[in-house]
Design a protein around this nucleic acid. Structure first.
Lengths: 193, 193
DNA sequence: GGAGACATGTAAGTGGTTACATGATTCC
DNA sequence: GGAATCATGTAACCACTTACATGTCTCC
């Protein structure tokens, strides 16, 4: 359902191919809802079969032909309904293998555990650096590039930037908290030796 | 796989029924890996069919009989292997419907959006209060209760408490960050009006 | 009299991952 | 010569959810 809506939401800005959608996904929605290419193609078939999108082939000479998907009115209505459904579900399904393994940390090799916590911090700080140095491209620019001349509503795309920054900011703050947490764990483990 | 391992991990502390496992799950692992009862029963069948656990019926008179599962040596070996596999995967599959909807916030009803952010904060602060007031029971005490007289290794269970606190602490810190984030969003939206 | 805890399970359906298949072009 | 990018899909499988089915006891 949510992936479906994510696709419809992106198609509202511009008609795109499955491959193009995947690229926009990877640098935006992917941060909070991951999807594989095969899944996207499957959803697109479903959406087309159910009248939420239509598609046209775009011929290209140096590259494979593309199938460009366009959202229909039905699709747009469906999306708006989902978007404005209240109450929204905050409770993201929790599946964190790292935390699960840490939970059983008492039975873990202590050196390995330490190394994992170090790696965890490293990974997050790398991401934090990317954000601080402003090397995260704005979602709307990437979309504009993929959507080429097909952008439906430039103004809507511009307004979307604010919300994109909200989601990035969330990761920034959670990342900070995560690093502090991991350091605390390391300290606590050292005291416990 | 991970659910499987979560079950094996808990069974290492004490033999338990599917129903008992669910209860221990709900107040511990559930915070980072949720599971439904039917899923637990299914996994238990699989684990028994593959020699990772054995089961015995425990007759009860005032209540339905229980099927008590005990971990085997094979199961314990399997669990230890999983636990000490490196590198661990940090990248939890991201599926956060709230963030996805917020990402499309430009197209959302503004009053609804505001209400959702308020509710989001409320929900987290309620949880934060529960933690601050120390009303989260220690995992090992709950397990001891459910495991009754069947605890295999009291010392291991005692040591597990530290790691349980790590996972709780993580939520505490992430919750704090989340509230700060939501307040920022609200402010930013007010400025943008 | 009804809700909720206790207790175990099956069946159907949805959502997601991984592997497979194909093939041209571009960059190193 | 090899890897990456462009581009589309299918099939098999795995994981998870929801609904159904059954029945007792206890507490309000």
């Amino acid at each position: 359902m949510s992936l479906r809506m994510g696709i419809l939401g992106l198609l509202q800005y511009a008609p795109m191919s499955g491959y193009g959608l995947k690229k926009v996904f990877d640098m935006s929605i992917n941060h909070f809802w991951s999807a594989s290419l095969s899944q996207i193609y499957r959803e697109l078939s479903w959406l087309e079969a159910n009248g939420h999108v239509t598609s046209d082939i775009e011929r290209q000479d140096a590259r494979p032909d593309k199938r460009i998907y366009t959202i229909t009115e039905t699709g747009a209505r469906e999306f708006a309904e989902w978007l404005n459904a209240f109450p929204g579900s905050f409770g993201a399904p929790r599946r964190d293998e790292f935390l699960l393994r840490l939970f059983f940390g008492a039975a873990m090799d202590k050196k390995l555990l330490r190394r994992e916590l170090d790696d965890f911090i490293l990974m997050i700080e790398k991401y934090g650096k990317t954000i601080r140095e402003d090397r995260i491209p704005d979602f709307s620019e990437v979309l504009a590039q993929i959507g080429e001349g097909r952008i439906t509503d430039r103004e809507a795309l511009r307004r979307a930037s604010l919300y994109w920054r909200f989601t990035v900011r969330r990761f920034e703050l959670v990342a900070e908290a995560s690093v502090r947490w991991a350091r605390e764990c390391i300290e606590s483990l050292e005291e416990n030796e």
